[in-house]
Amino acid sequence: MKKLIVALGAIWLIGYFIIPSVDSYIVSILLYAGINAILAMSLNLVNGCTGQFSMGHAGFMSIGGYIAALITLSLPIQTGLFPLAILTAGCVAAFAGLIVGLPSLRLRGDYLAIVTLGFGEIIRVVLLNINVIGGARGLPNIAHLSNFSWVFGCMVITLFSIERILRSPYGRAFLAVREDEVAAEAMGVDTTHAKLQAFVIGAFFAGCAGALFAHTLRYLNPQIFDFNRSFEIIIIVVLGGMGNIRGSIIAAFLLTFMREALRPLQDITRIDFRMIIYAIMLISLMLLSPEGILSSKWRKRGRS
């Protein structure tokens, strides 16, 4: 707890004194990296720590983003409103996670992959068809409420909460489900319940990340939250190491910076070239080092 307060204080100081003098392009990359880190950590709780495979994280993110944007757009803007919007966004996303998880988590992991993938698509189709939030035109003019302190503060809180959860009896149950579902059940773990808890918590943080994203980009469009967005989060988790929460943060920063560095290549080939690189990375990581690329030092500390 003390560490958390110190970290939050440090982030506030950096955000107050150093960030205003940094180039705004770099700051925006840092913000997206931080948001990706929150998304990756929350997905890692489901995919890495509980051994389930969710492929619709962008769906929860989009729910969070739209809910938070609607709150700040419809109520008169005050700074105090923003944390409230983030929390509401998280809760609504968590509720969506409950609805999606309930039917699919009773079954083996592979079904979850398809159901979540499908859920992400359903959300996108539904968002496209709601006129109040702009449909395919998107939702512009979202207030610029998010900044370095908010994003990195949320990132640290997410890290802290997920690591705490993993060290609690609940988290032990998640890890037991990952290692051997049948054995865990035999030891008295309610596996469906544990999977559902992990899934709902993951959805909550994804919703919060969506809220931050909406107020960083200041424009939402259902197309932003397509398959590729979900795959991007998965590759971050795999790169950082499945079940390695701190690895996810490093991988999120690596990958977000890499994407910026690859932008010129995209202009030359006129296609989304980073997806080819992501795909090759995914396959070769699984074949050569399924633990992720980060060293064992991080692994020992990060994986509880």
Partner: peptide, 28 residues
């Protein structure tokens, strides 16, 4: 085949990777 004895989630991730590779190298 190299993943025949790996955890199933790893094979699943690989197949997602293969799918993306086919899609985007198809575009290329």
């Amino acid at each position: 085949r190299p993943l025949r004895h790996a955890p199933r989630i790893n094979v699943l991730i690989t197949s997602v990777g293969v799918s993306l590779l086919l899609q985007f190298s198809g575009q290329l």
